[in-house]
Structures are given as C-alpha cells and as structure tokens.
Amino acid sequence: MKFLVDVRIHEREAAKPHLAAHLAYLNAHFETGDFSMFGAYGDGTGGMLIAEAASPEALESVLELDPLKAGNCAKWQATPLKVACIDPSAFTR
C-alpha cells in the first residue's frame, strides 16, 4: 500500500536538535524503498512523504522511528493513496 504522510512541526525550536537525524532517517528509508519521495514545505512548517507499507500498522511502526517523535514536536497524518498516474521521469534517482 502507498500512503501520503503529512508531517507538521508544531514546536520549531524543539524540532531543531532533531532535524539532522530526521533527514538521515528519511534518507535511510528512501534507500530501502520504504519512502519513494519526501520534501519539506517552503514555509518550514513540516513536509510530506510518499511511503510504501504492507498495512497502516506497518507504516506506523516505521514512522515511530522518526527522530522528531523523540522531540514531541510534530504530528503525522497518514492517508492511503491510490496512485492513478505517474511520470516515472519525475522520480529518477
């Protein structure tokens, strides 16, 4: 299953010490294929990612490892995503 995950940082100062580890976490899961895309919102309020997981519970177990969780400074909203059309050239690595 694919999921669109919206991450909203509600405590920016509390998030700052966790951002480097958060980026390493995102990159590691991108390399394993758990995440096919991620990016930050331009206004600094958070970001989004496209995730692949067998179930919502499996996704939650991956999201629980996000270093931002340790800072209790963000909220995650995961929504199942049915991909209708994609331009493969937009996702070249």
Results as ranks from 00 to 15, higher is better:
G42I: 06
A90G: 13
G47K: 03
T92R: 12
A24V: 02
C73R: 09
T79P: 14
A51L: 04
A58Y: 00
G46Q: 01
T32W: 11
C73M: 10
V83R: 05
A15C: 09
P56Y: 04
A53F: 08
E60Q: 07
E31M: 06
V5K: 03
V5L: 04
A51F: 03
A90Y: 08
A21K: 00
P88Q: 14
I50D: 09
I50K: 09
G47H: 04
G42T: 11
T45H: 08
F3V: 05
A40H: 02
D43L: 11
A20E: 09
K2G: 07
R93E: 09
R93P: 12
K82G: 15
A21G: 08
I9V: 15
F35R: 01
P17R: 12
G44N: 06
P88E: 15
V5F: 03
A15F: 03
L59Y: 01
G44E: 07
P17E: 14
L26V: 01
I50T: 11
E57T: 05
L63G: 04
H18D: 10
V5W: 06
F91P: 05
G44Q: 08
A54M: 06
P88K: 14
A14R: 14
R12F: 06
D87H: 13
M1F: 09
I86F: 13
M48H: 05
G44R: 03
E31S: 04
T45Y: 07
T45D: 13
G46E: 02
L23W: 04
A70H: 12
A40M: 01
L19M: 12
P56M: 01
P17Q: 13
A58E: 08
L59F: 00
A58W: 02
F3L: 01
A74F: 07
K75F: 10
N27W: 00
A90S: 14
D87L: 11
C85G: 15
G39T: 02
H29Q: 09
M48I: 05
L49D: 04
Q77H: 14
A20N: 10
T32H: 13
F35C: 02
F38P: 06
F38C: 03
L68Q: 07
R8D: 01
E31V: 00
G71K: 02
A20H: 08
D87P: 12
E60V: 02
F30P: 02
Q77V: 11
A51T: 06
I86H: 15
H10F: 12
L26H: 04
R12M: 09
A28K: 08
V5C: 04
G46C: 03
A70V: 09
T32N: 14
T92G: 12
V7R: 01
H22L: 00
K69V: 10
D66R: 03
T92F: 01
E13G: 06
D43P: 11
G47L: 06
C85K: 15
V7E: 00
P67I: 07
A74I: 07
M1Q: 13
W76T: 00
L63S: 07
D34W: 02
K69P: 12
Y25S: 00
G44I: 00
I9W: 08
T92S: 12
M37E: 13
E13M: 08
G47N: 02
A51S: 10
V7N: 00
V5M: 05
